[in-house]
Design a protein around this nucleic acid. Structure first.
Lengths: 206, 206
DNA sequence: TCGTAGGTAAAACGGGCGTTTGAATGCTAC
DNA sequence: GTAGCATTCAAACGCCCGTTTTACCTACGA
């Protein structure tokens, strides 16, 4: 059968992403995932080894691209001489917002990300830190340079809050419907503006 | 035996709160809960009817008190003539922060709350909206009065982001250890200041 | 003192879980 | 064409799930 365009692995990843977003990692079973992917149950353990590894690969598939876009946007922002807080925030937000408003499964993935944030799952945190920690480090350094009056601890706090707030907000963007008469592009730009202004004001607060 | 000070119901609620915070609603089983509570497995269904209802009661036990404190703090803030944004935010944040830094299970509960926020569980959302929607309405009205330049939609956005950010942040407070040489009271006050300043700046952003 | 109601206990219910197995299938290179 | 490999498949593995059942204990009012 397998008449779809995508490979078994890709269909499993897509179905897993949707179901993890809706039901959580523990709440979505491999039987649900493989049924949604139109794939045999054993395919998950054949291609991914275990459920936990499947979870990791769901993250890797999106985060490789997302973080590449973020670093690229950060480099472009830093290349400009007068780059300010808002430009750094835009570099962080725009790639994720593009993902969350994507026609593909990206919206689901941002909700998965928000779940992971709330879960405090140690194994997952280690995986994310090992694979993508350098991205947050680069943003942290760029923010630190532009917020010299904040001591290290205070900056850490605020970036943590900002990251949580943005993750949560972007997870919601996929769910909340836009007003009629607004194109998706307009909606996306206005959303990004909201988030950037909000976060910048929070970071700059005395 | 039941040699503990607390009733079977209370011990189940406490153990469920801890395990839901750590493992999630789907991830924590009633066998784990009843074992941690030192109670027979059947006690959950006897006292609560079902797992889903147990989840609801875990929320009710804390939210009745939390929202009463929030409304009380809001009334006190509104009674003062010059009450501003920061006072409203303090009324919202302080009761939750007290809970999250509580010696009892409050810290776990705030993490449960953050999970519920990320889950978008329909049944749970309905329960929370039915039982505690009026609290958010009162805060919303108070904020609207102090932010007349924001249109309805914009205010809705920002309060949503603020609520999400604060929920995330407070869930983290219970996890992050305070610096040595800082009393818990100092830590609490500084944390509240951070959150209030951050949120106020975000709400006031042009 | 007995009957009864409220609570606790152990055991079992059917079913879903993640994972493994071993045979069947498709595909590529010789 | 056939050997060899990668993939798919149905079936089963043992285990844990939420819930129910049935019996037992205990306390208290009649």
């Amino acid at each position: 059968m397998n008449s779809q365009h995508f490979s078994t692995k890709e269909r499993i990843l897509g179905a897993a992403e949707q179901l993890f977003a809706r039901l959580g990692f523990a709440g979505a079973s491999l039987r649900q995932v493989t049924a949604a992917a139109n794939v045999n149950l054993a395919a998950v353990n054949y291609h991914f080894g275990s459920k936990e590894n499947l979870i990791n690969e769901v993250f890797r598939r999106r985060l490789d691209e997302l973080n590449a876009h973020r670093l690229q946007a950060l480099d472009q922002a830093l290349a400009r001489p007068g780059a300010g807080l808002e430009d750094l925030l835009a570099a962080f937000i725009h790639p994720a917002l593009d993902l969350s408003l994507d026609r593909g499964g990206g919206g689901a993935f941002v909700r998965v990300l928000a779940r992971a944030y709330a879960e405090h799952n140690d194994a997952l945190r280690k995986f994310l830190s090992d694979n993508y920690g350098h991205v947050m480090k680069r943003f942290h350094a760029a923010f630190a340079q532009r917020l010299p009056d904040l001591d290290k601890e205070e900056l850490y706090w605020r970036l943590d809050i900002v990251a949580g707030a943005l993750t949560y907000a972007m997870a919601d963007f996929g769910v909340i419907k836009r007003k009629s008469g607004v194109t998706e592009q307009q909606h996306r730009e206005r959303s990004a503006e909201h988030l950037i202004r909000f976060a910048a004001a929070g970071l700059r607060a005395p």
